[in-house]
């Protein structure tokens, strides 16, 4: 279950209630970002960040470094095989 889609925070619409506009491929939706903001850090600083959105809530940050690492591992699988054969 649990459709979750990566999107980018483009605007803070209501800092008090942790609401932000998130862009998914040109489609925008107001989303609650309470679960991904740290206390004390101004909401504005999250603009531009990628988050995983589920039913109108940003539930996690997307970690670019880890994404690259995962893809790198897949790439290396191939190299390893070419090496072996």
């Amino acid at each position: 279950m649990c459709l979750g889609i990566p999107g980018r925070i483009v605007e803070i619409t209501d800092a008090e209630n942790s609401m932000a506009l998130v862009d998914v491929s040109g489609v925008r939706r107001e989303v609650n970002i309470l679960c991904v903001v740290e206390e004390g850090k101004p909401a504005q600083e999250y603009i531009g960040e990628w988050v995983l959105v589920h039913v109108g809530f940003a539930m996690s940050h997307l970690d670019e470094e880890e994404a690259r690492h995962t893809l790198q591992l897949l790439e290396e699988l191939g190299e390893l095989q070419e090496h072996l054969s």
């Binding site: 459709l3 889609i5 998914v24 491929s25 040109g26 489609v27 939706r29 959105v53």
Partner: peptide, 12 residues
């Protein structure tokens, strides 16, 4: 279109 794809991904 990218936007249609985006909407389809969001709404399944």
């Amino acid at each position: 279109r990218d936007e249609v794809r985006g909407m389809c991904e969001i709404l399944g």
